[in-house]
Each structure stands twice: as structure tokens, then as C-alpha cells.
């Protein structure tokens, strides 16, 4: 077991982890932040995307021990109280989700796209979402949502 400490959604956490424990399992099973999802076992679906030290990462592709000292934001940490983050707001307005399972990862990835580029083109968005799978929407409304979020963030 390894002792690690990190900040998640503004809260300081210290815990012991097994060497093989994945970061996503720590987040879901121990911290009970179940908004971060697991949709595959080959790091392809992106349902587990979180923000770690300012980068969007797939939390299934990291060991929990590697998060020692990190600052993490998950989907639960995006909204400010009752006020949705602009990306969350845009996904709702544009019907950018159906079943909602890929949605937390899609939203986190979209936050990352907009952070790197506040005015993304369709191509930029498609490229930025290449690590995230959605089976419901056909992605059309997701791309629309990211563009809408860009507008909301400028306003």
C-alpha cells in the first residue's frame, strides 16, 4: 500500500492505495464520485475523462499512486452550486446527450478543447473528441454543444 494525497474538486484527500489500483477505481469506489464512468477496458471510450493538473486525462489509464500531489476536477466539480458550467449548460440546451453515460467524459473533454482553443472549428472539435465514444447521439449535437459552450463562455 502507498499513501497518497491529492486535491479533488477542491477537497484535500489522503488515502492508502494498492499499487495496482487505477485512479478511476479510487475515484468511483473509494471516494464515491460515481459521475466518472468506465465504458471500456482499453482506454478508448473516454467515459472516465477527468482534469488532472490542468490536463484532460483518462483516469482508467493512470494508477491512483500517480495522482499523488495532483489537483483533480471531476464532473461533480464543474458546476458552481446550482449554476451549471457553460459546457454542461450547452449540452442540455443542444440535446448533446441521450443516455448520459458518455456525457461526463464528453463534457470534461469539451472543457479541455475550449480551454486550449476558445473558438474551435468543427474540425478542431472532431479532433478534440477523437478519444471519446458516444453511441447515442451521432455526435452531431455534441459538436453543436461545444460551439454553443464557446458562445456562452464568451458572454
Amino acid at each position: 500500500m502507498t499513501k497518497i494525497s491529492f486535491t479533488i474538486n477542491g477537497k484535500q484527500v489522503s488515502t492508502d492505495v494498492e499499487g495496482r489500483t487505477l485512479l478511476v477505481d479510487l475515484i468511483r469506489d473509494e471516494l464515491r464520485l460515481t459521475g466518472t464512468h468506465v465504458g471500456c477496458d482499453t482506454s478508448q471510450c473516454g467515459c472516465c475523462t477527468i482534469e488532472l493538473n490542468g490536463d484532460m486525462v483518462k483516469s482508467c489509464a493512470m494508477l491512483a499512486a500517480q495522482a499523488d500531489g495532483a489537483t483533480i476536477t471531476t464532473i461533480e466539480g464543474l458546476a458552481k452550486g446550482d449554476v451549471l458550467h457553460p459546457v454542461q449548460q450547452a449540452f442540455t440546451e443542444c440535446h448533446g446527450l441521450q443516455c448520459g453515460f458518455c456525457t461526463p467524459g464528453m463534457i470534461m473533454a469539451s472543457v479541455g478543447i475550449l480551454k486550449a482553443n476558445p473558438n474551435p472549428s468543427d474540425d478542431d472539435i472532431v479532433k478534440g473528441l477523437e478519444g471519446n465514444l458516444c453511441r447515442c447521439t451521432g455526435y452531431v449535437n455534441i459538436i453543436k454543444s461545444v460551439k454553443r459552450a464557446a458562445e456562452l463562455m464568451k458572454a
Binding site: R28, L33, T34, G35, T36, H37, V38, T74, I75, E76, L78, A79, L84, Q88, F91, T92, E93, H95, L97, C99, G100, F101, T103, P104, I107
Partner: peptide, 19 residues
Amino acid sequence: VARVEDRRLVTGAGRFVAD
């Protein structure tokens, strides 16, 4: 109208079996 089920799903408050 925007969907009533969206709010829980965009905030990570959805409840799937594994949750």
C-alpha cells in the same frame, strides 16, 4: 423542450447500476 432528465446526467448525478 430541453429534457428533464439532463440535469442529473450532466452533473454526474445519474444513477447507473455500477454506481
